[in-house]
Design a protein around this nucleic acid. Structure first.
Length: 805
RNA sequence: GCGAGCGUGGCGAAAUUGGCAGACGCGCCGGACUUAGGAUCCGGUGGGUAACCGUGCAGGUUCAAGUCCUGUCGCUCGCACCA
């Protein structure tokens, strides 16, 4: 069979007959793969693994009566295209369009049943118009705000660069040391949804690992806030607030630490300490950029010269600035309990601070620092309480005193959506001297990205230099005003795209409410695990926001999530251009056909594990198809007949049953193995004396349906050759006849003292007592027991008998 | 450092979830058909002559452990001073 030829033929046939066209109604099943970024590197085998195998799942669901919706589009904004433009001068839009054309051709060659009429590109104005609309909804509802935040800035390239472009603190392109720069940026208030994002995880059919990662990322921690009054209040401040999970240790506080970036640093620093503190803060700013992650185990810090008051006992404690306290978590200040925290202990030792024990183990003293829960001591009226009781009691007391109380903290921070970049959706905001920050009215969307801009880096983004773009009029007062020149993070574009597919060309709204509520949530979402705390979290957030605003009936976008494993290069390393170990699917498809590639990707790996690519396996799958074709050659001209051979009929139904369970569980490797077993049985049958070609043809006809989701073109071709008229994908999947799996006899393994000694054949379906009785009557078993009296006999129905002597 | 996951033949991997370890395939060995085969078909293939031994290593629970528990080593991923 010329696979290239027949694959082309069937793709054209499907197209012509509208086999892949989605019609609304019925028992919908929305299958979605994470949409690709159109890079110049084209599709690699990893995309195939993701899209090709998920398509097999989708085809299976379709043959099982589901009305499957499986769309595809392109996540087309982003940094690589812009960097490419800086390097080559080729406009991002042009290179992106070209890449999309190539990738779309490759995707079509895969033979996936995408309904292309729902396709979109996130970089097209008719899509990003609605990304901007989304921004405005968040803005209007208080979920979007501006604040100053640090960005990475390369002084040589004169541009802001992304975190992933910073390698060892240096710019990946020019190796210049990157500096931190404070800039005003837009944020989405994802932290408002922290608790719901956490709670919602429980009901999702997602990999536990991914849920755990999101839980850790959200980082809920239940504790309390303590207010330390300043010894000398000023006009600017009168107290330091700290967050703690160990309120039971409050009476052991011997100092308080604030982060170098804390607003109170200048307020609390006394003139005598000014020089030392300023020097420390400057050094910390540098360190946090370059080596914060690896080394700074050393607990450094300097005294501000000021003191604050422990609200519980009125004790005066010194305030330090130290970089082991993070400005980004909690209140940016912590209480120092040297006796019960390893970091505080190290800091106190180094700075000669007092160490006061207030918790002891339930028995004895134990060494310091003692960081576990125990019993309160040296704590006056709290003495004797357990840590658990003490936490509650202390926080209650603080509340009475008006100096704190219970508080829950989340590690997650708000989502920064500003990018000082050209190739993204412009943020729809206008700055007016008279009216201030003004959102672009919805009727004026989209704010179009100008094509004609200059990419040479000179300290401003290309958008900021485009006078035509920047200069506008204020929508309120009509006077000259300037546009925001930052663009949106591409994760904003991809945070709502699954809502666009059902109604991809709607120019009145981002989606039709009825249609979206009918088709969503996504029933099965498949993509890489690396998006656990990015895209997958943002999408959940946006869905919840749109739900709360009344646009959606559901508040979780993806019911079931599956991660495909990573296909590594033949050398066992992640595929990369620099390693030169990238496997391109194109030559493989040209040589063996896309079905052979698909089968191999299924057969060679555990889907969620992935693994190194190997060339050898692909031939085995091509050979497997040849074996099936050879049977087809034998039976093409006979009339099919279902007069059964018991042994082969058993194999056939066993295969149907197993494959039907494997495919929805993404167990493709075993599904293919079961089909191979059936083909082996067919060969055995064909070689036997009792072989009936009409029956063999019947079995082949069923196999072709069973395998249709796994090798769609090939199976369609065989089906046609066997006399089938309609497309297999408009037919039902074979159903296992359980009666055919009932056999008269079962072979039991007989164990003596837990070791298999022999086998006995007994009728199927016996009660345990009868199994035991018959087994003990067996001559071989009798001999093995040799007259000894069994102490205990365990019978596992249809499996084994264990006789303990 | 913390958290999660993994470790099974020469290789990719299976194992009804505590019940005959190694399905299926690659590779290898042998046979058939052949002028020939790197095509195809059939058979064999964890180790050991054997009793037996075998799922990283050491223990434990159990009639029974790849599967559960404890410890340990190694690898991968995620988070990295989170108070």
């Amino acid at each position: 069979m010329d696979h290239i030829e027949i694959e082309k033929k069937w793709r054209e046939r499907w197209e012509k007959d509208g086999v892949n066209t989605f019609h609304e109604g019925g028992d919908k099943h929305y299958v979605l793969e994470m949409l690709p970024y159109p890079s110049g590197a084209k599709l690699h085998v990893g995309h195939w693994y993701n899209y090709g195998l998920t398509d097999s799942y989708a085809r299976f669901m379709r043959m099982n009566g589901k009305n499957v919706f499986q769309p595809m589009g392109f996540d087309a904004f982003g940094l690589p295209a812009e960097n490419y433009a800086i390097k080559t001068g080729i406009h991002p839009k042009d290179s992106t369009d070209a890449n999309i054309a190539t990738m779309e051709r490759q995707l079509r060659d895969m033979g996936i049943m995408f309904d292309w009429s729902h396709e979109f590109y996130t970089c097209a104005p008719d899509y990003y118009k609605w990304t901007q609309w989304l921004f405005l909804q968040l803005y209007k509802n208080g979920l979007c705000y501006q604040k100053k935040a640090p960005v990475n800035y390369c002084p040589s390239c004169q541009t802001v660069i992304a975190n992933e472009q910073v390698v060892d603190g240096k710019c990946e392109r020019c190796k210049t040391e990157v500096v931190r720069k404070e800039m005003t940026q837009w944020f989405f208030k994802i932290t408002d949804y922290a608790e719901r994002l956490l709670q919602g995880l429980d009901g999702l059919d997602w990999p536990e690992k991914t849920k755990t990662m999101q839980r850790n990322w959200i980082g809920k921690s239940v504790g309390g806030e303590v207010v330390f009054d300043l010894e000398k209040p000023t006009a600017d401040a009168n107290a330091i607030r700290v967050f703690t999970t160990r309120a039971d240790t409050l009476l052991g506080v011997t100092y308080v630490v604030i982060a170098p970036e804390h607003a109170l640093v200048p307020v609390l620093t006394v003139p005598k300490q000014k020089k030392a503190v300023e020097k420390y803060v400057a050094e910390a700013a540098k360190r946090s950029e370059i080596e914060r992650t690896s080394t700074s185990k050393d607990k450094t810090g300097v005294f501000t010269g000021s003191y604050c008051i422990n609200p519980l006992n009125g004790k005066k404690v010194p305030v330090f600035v130290a970089d082991y306290c993070l400005s980004t978590y909690g209140t940016g200040a912590v209480m120092g309990v040297a006796a019960h925290d390893t970091r505080d202990y190290a800091f106190a030792k180094k700075n000669g601070l007092e160490i006061v024990r207030v918790i002891r183990p339930a028995d004895g003293e134990g060494e310091l620092p003692f960081t576990e829960y125990g019993v309160m001591t040296n704590s006056g009226k709290f003495d004797g309480l357990t840590s658990e009781e003490g936490k509650a009691a202390v926080l209650e007391e603080l509340e009475k005193l008006g100096h704190g109380g219970k508080k829950t903290n989340y590690r997650m921070r708000d989502w920064s959506v500003s990018r000082q970049r050209y190739w993204g959706a412009p943020i729809p905001v206008i700055y007016c001297e008279h009216c201030g920050t003004v959102p672009v009215p919805e009727k004026d969307l989209p704010v179009e990205l100008p094509y004609d801009v200059n990419f040479t880096p000179d300290g401003k983004s290309p958008l900021a230099r485009s006078e035509k773009f920047v200069n506008t009029v204020c929508p309120i007062c009509g006077k000259p005003a300037r546009r925001e020149t930052d663009t949106l993070d591409t994760f904003v574009c991809s945070s709502w795209y699954y809502l666009r597919y059902p109604d991809a060309h709607n120019d009145k709204a981002p989606f039709d409410k009825k249609r979206v509520n009918a088709l969503l949530p996504v029933d099965c979402y498949v993509g890489g695990a690396e998006h656990a705390c990015g895209h997958l979290l943002y999408s959940r957030f946006i869905t919840k926001v749109l739900h709360d605003l009344g646009y959606l009936d559901f508040d979780e976008p993806f019911k079931r999530l599956v991660h495909q494993g990573v296909i590594l290069g033949p050398d066992g390393y992640r595929m990369s251009k620099s390693r030169g170990n990238v496997i391109s699917p194109d030559p493989i498809v040209q040589k063996y056909g896309s079905d052979a590639l698909r089968l191999y990707m299924m057969f060679g790996f555990d889907y969620t594990e992935g693994g190194p690519w190997s060339d050898g396996g692909i031939q085995s799958c091509a050979r497997f198809m040849d074996r099936i074709e050879r049977i087809a050659d034998d039976v093409t001209n006979v009339k099919a007949d279902a007069t059964a051979d018991d042994a082969l009929d058993y194999e056939l139904n066993y295969c149907i049953k197993q494959v039907s369970a494997d495919i929805p569980a993404f167990g493709f490797n075993t599904a293919v193995a079961r089909c191979m077993e059936l083909v082996n049985a067919m060969y055995k049958y064909r070689a036997g004396k009792e072989c009936s070609l009409p029956y063999l043809k019947h079995v082949l006809g069923v196999l072709v349906k069973v395998m249709a989701p796994l090798a769609p073109h090939f199976c369609e071709e065989l089906n046609e050759r066997l006399g089938g008229k309609a497309s297999l994908f408009d037919q039902s999947y074979p159903v296992c006849d359980e009666r055919k799996l009932v056999r008269a006899e079962t072979e039991y393994a007989v164990q003596i003292n837990s070791r298999v000694k022999c086998k006995v054949v007994l009728p199927q379906g016996l009660a345990a007592a009868d199994v035991q009785k018959l087994a003990l009557e067996n001559a071989e078993v009798k001999e093995l027991i040799g007259g000894a009296t069994p102490k205990k006999i365990i019978v596992i129905p249809e499996r084994l008998i264990n006789i303990v002597l």
